[in-house]
């Protein structure tokens, strides 16, 4: 279904797909962002489908990370950032004054490029978000921790050493621990910013497998530099360049029959 952009028509409207509001988890409309005087995002409008994996690709510095950070309001602390436009999560504006940022961040979890477990035990890392919320019995919390570690495909590797330091894990395990930590607080959306770019191929494979499993109950947004990875795990792919959305479509079409020359050039350049 073609999407009618009411603010500024794309040069080729057919290069951007749209989803019905009911089927989408996040709706971004007219989003622009600048760091001081330097624009980083230019008038983005797109919807992200629920319980699917949506990949963002594009050259380095095109604003992919910046976009993800808007989605869980990590820019709030940077007073240089100037933002216009709106982002809706399940129909509600995430920047509305009545929104509790902490609550929003629990609903929209984020995993960063470099694994960043806290300097605590494995158990305490996963318990971190739960403890912040409080109100859970220790039994309940331990159950959730086990569930989160299982969901992140880490339980079998760490169940005998939950009290060991998280920093004693390998890089791939650390990244899965970070995912488990995020899952434990029960997000609806999981933002992954190049989650495997610092990992070895086997760990990468495990993360990709994990992403495939998680989409049964989560909306996933994946930023990646790796075209094969985007092709392997995502359902939809959006191509960004210079902070603007160039093309957005089902992953297989975008990779095999990109509509725009720019997209094709980028993909073939990266694939080669």
């Amino acid at each position: 279904m073609p999407f009618v952009q009411d603010l500024r028509p794309s040069p080729d409207p057919a290069a951007v797909i749209d989803f019905s509001p009911e089927a989408s988890s996040l709706a971004i409309r007219g989003l622009s962002l600048a760091y001081g005087d330097t624009p980083a995002l230019r008038d983005l409008t797109l919807r992200i489908p629920r319980h699917r994996v949506t990949a963002f690709i594009g050259p380095s510095g095109c604003g992919k990370s910046t976009l993800l950070r808007v989605l869980n309001r990590l820019h709030d602390l940077n007073d240089e950032v100037v933002r216009t436009g709106e982002v809706k999560l399940e129909g509600e504006d995430i920047h509305a004054p009545e929104v509790d940022v902490a609550e929003l961040r629990r609903r929209v979890g984020m995993v960063f490029q470099a694994p960043n477990p806290f300097p605590m035990s494995i158990h305490d890392n996963v318990a971190f978000g739960l403890r912040l919320q409080g109100g859970l019995s220790k039994r309940k919390r331990d159950d959730i921790i086990e569930w989160a570690l299982r969901s992140a495909a880490l339980w079998d590797e760490v169940k005998d050493r939950l009290r060991a330091s998280a920093w004693s894990l390998s890089g791939g395990q650390q990244q899965r621990l970070v995912i488990a930590r995020t899952l434990a607080v029960g997000p609806e959306v999981l933002l992954l910013d190049e989650p495997a770019s610092a990992l070895d191929p086997i760990s990468t494979l495990k993360i990709e497998e994990l992403i495939g499993n998680l989409k049964s109950h989560l909306t996933l947004v994946l930023v990646t530099h790796n075209m094969q990875q985007a092709a392997r795990v995502s359902d939809y792919t959006a191509f960004l360049q210079d902070g603007a959305l160039v093309e957005y479509g089902p992953t297989d079409t975008l990779f095999t029959h990109p509509r725009l020359r720019r997209t094709e050039n980028y993909i073939t350049g990266r694939m080669a």
């Binding site: 902490a102 609550e103 960043n116 477990p117 806290f118 912040l132 919320q133 930590r181």
Partner: peptide, 13 residues
Amino acid sequence: PDQQREGALALGA
């Protein structure tokens, strides 16, 4: 590293 701070914030701290 700032990632530690962001990691905590991203969990709703």
